[in-house]
Computed example of a mutant assay.
Amino acid sequence: MTPEIDLLVNPRSGRGRAAVTAVRLKERLREAGADVRVLVGHSAADSRRLARLSAADRPHALVAVGGDGLVHQAVQGVVGTGVPLAVIPAGTGNDIARAFGRPGRSTRDTAAAILAGRTRATDAVRLRLDDGAERYFLSVLACGFDARVNERVNGFRFGVGRAGYVVGLLSELRSFTPTDFTVDVDGRRIEEPGMLVAVGNTSAYGGGMHICPDAVPDDGLLDVVFLRAAPLSRFVRLFPLVFSGGHTGLEQVVVERGRSVAIRGEAGAVYADGERIGPPPLVCDVVSGAVEMLDLTS
Rank of each mutant, 00 (worst) to 15 (best):
S54D: 03
A45T: 14
A116G: 10
S54V: 06
A99K: 04
A133G: 14
A86Q: 10
Q76G: 10
A86T: 12
G66D: 09
D123E: 10
D57V: 12
L50F: 08
L62S: 08
D123P: 04
A55C: 02
S47L: 07
A99G: 04
T81G: 07
A55L: 01
G132E: 10
R135E: 13
A97H: 06
H60W: 03
R118C: 06
E134K: 12
R118D: 14
I96E: 01
G101N: 00
T92L: 09
F137Y: 15
L115M: 11
A116F: 01
A116L: 11
G117K: 03
R48N: 12
R135F: 14
A113S: 14
A99P: 03
H60M: 11
A51S: 09
G69V: 10
Q73S: 13
R102D: 12
N94S: 07
A86F: 06
L50W: 06
I88T: 06
D131Q: 04
G67C: 03
D123K: 07
Q73D: 13
I114N: 01
I88C: 13
E134N: 05
T122I: 15
D123W: 03
A86E: 12
A51T: 00
G82R: 12
A113I: 12
G69Q: 05
G93K: 02
S106Q: 07
S54A: 15
A86K: 08
G93T: 09
A113L: 11
V83H: 01
S47A: 15
G69E: 03
V79I: 14
A61R: 07
L70I: 02
H60P: 00
L70G: 04
V65E: 04
V75P: 01
A124V: 10
D109L: 09
R52P: 10
V87N: 05
L50R: 11
R58L: 10
G101T: 01
T107V: 15
A44N: 12
A112E: 14
D131P: 05
R120C: 14
L85R: 07
V75E: 02
T92M: 13
A55I: 02
I96P: 06
T119N: 11
A113R: 13
A116W: 00
V87C: 01
D57Y: 00
G104K: 00
E134G: 12
A124H: 09
L127K: 02
D95Q: 07
P103Q: 04
G132N: 06
V75H: 03
S106I: 05
D46I: 11
